[in-house]
């Protein structure tokens, strides 16, 4: 459906927002672009929407080059970050806007508006003022408005960014189910990896205008491509290592690695769940610097450990087994939660 080929965007001639980005979105696929703010993900959407000209590269929609096609003729939908509902129109007026622009008749428009408002769960809100809507309702109206003209591709810029957590978690599930039911091809951007993993069929992680990694959510989660992706996903247990067979020599001592791990100089990632607390005297000796209660079903506690040698370690454990702050702790490593990353750009511990 959508294809980007080496798209580059520079602002003011020097700052580069996108650098040679290539990306494909298949028909009916939900792709989520994930990255910290300033990584160029919103610019990517604006280029596809035709609100920003690319300095180089091509954007193709259903095989057609979009160069020179103005935004209003591209047939793509965009849900803006803060919705951008038209304040002077009521809910129905907002949803009907795109239909009117495409010249559909009054009866057809009314029918479609009603259909969409039912779809997003606001069947009776047609005459309400948008200023009177809650954040979640505004988000639904924005979605209905974007879907109404049946765009070939729907793009969402931080679709759930301003909503509170509970609502966000519920809506992301609803969105995914809805898109799959309607067969919508969707390209979303977000800085929240939880949102991206829950929503997307495929995740694209961006860093400073380039694609750092692309793949299925599980794949990206399990095998981050590099230290940047790992850290962005919240993994901070990184240490340079030398892998020999199924063992790696690190500042933390010898760490077991899964079979088939690439050999030689690597950067080793140990997920917090792979740092196991041991009885006193067994394994790596650490001091507990901080513990953070995360709640959730497992009553998870994150413990920040300062090992006798090597960078700090984060361990996840249950509340019951969590050691107190300032006390000593001994840990070893679960090879199933250990990933070897390429050795380049070893980041400073932090």
């Amino acid at each position: 459906m959508l294809q980007l080929e080496d798209v580059t965007v520079r602002f003011g001639g020097h700052t580069t927002a996108l650098e040679g980005v290539s990306l494909r979105v298949a028909d009916g696929e939900i792709v989520c672009v994930l990255g910290p703010s300033g990584s160029g993900k919103s610019t990517l959407l604006r280029v596809v929407a035709g609100l920003q000209d690319a300095d180089a590269g091509r954007v193709l929609l259903a095989g057609r080059d979009l160069a020179g096609v103005p935004a209003h003729k591209r047939g793509v939908g965009l849900m803006f970050q803060d919705h951008q509902l038209f304040p002077q129109r009521d809910v129905a007026g907002n949803v009907a806007f795109g239909l009117r622009m495409h010249g559909s008749g009054r009866a057809e428009t009314e029918g479609r508006v009603a259909e969409l408002l039912r779809l997003v769960g606001l069947p009776d809100a047609g005459h309400r003022a948008v200023a009177a809507l809650s954040g979640g309702e505004q988000q639904r109206v924005a979605l209905a408005r974007a879907l109404a003209p049946r765009p070939r591709l729907l793009m969402l810029d931080e679709p759930l960014g301003q909503l509170d957590r509970g609502l966000r978690e519920r809506l992301v599930v609803e969105l995914r189910a809805l898109f799959h039911r309607l067969g919508t091809t969707a390209l979303a951007v977000t800085h929240d990896h939880g949102e991206a993993f829950a929503l997307a069929d495929r995740v694209v992680i961006m860093r400073e205008g380039r694609i750092a990694q692309a793949g299925g959510p599980l794949e990206v989660w399990q095998r981050p491509a590099d230290a940047f992706v790992a850290r962005f996903l919240g993994f901070d247990n990184l240490v340079p290592a030398t892998v020999r067979g199924e063992r790696a020599e690190t500042a933390w001592g010898t760490v077991p690695v899964p079979a088939g791990t690439p050999q030689g100089e690597r950067l080793l990632l140990v997920r917090p769940h792979g740092v196991r607390l041991r009885p006193a005297g067994e394994g790596l000796e650490c001091t507990v610097e901080a513990r953070t209660f995360r709640g959730g079903d497992g009553s998870t506690v994150t413990v920040l450990l300062r090992p006798r040698q090597g960078p700090a370690l984060e361990a996840a454990c249950t509340l019951r087994e969590a050691p107190g702050e300032g006390s000593g702790a001994w840990v070893d490593f679960d090879p199933r939660e250990v990933v070897a990353l390429p050795p380049q750009d070893v980041p400073a511990a932090g």
Binding site: G50, L51, P70, A71, H72, R74, F80, F97, G98, M101
Partner: peptide, 16 residues
């Protein structure tokens, strides 16, 4: 961005 929202929904610059 309101104008952009209108453009993405199919409004020409004049219409927007």
């Amino acid at each position: 961005r309101l104008r952009e929202a209108a453009a993405v929904l199919g409004a020409s610059p004049l219409r927007a």
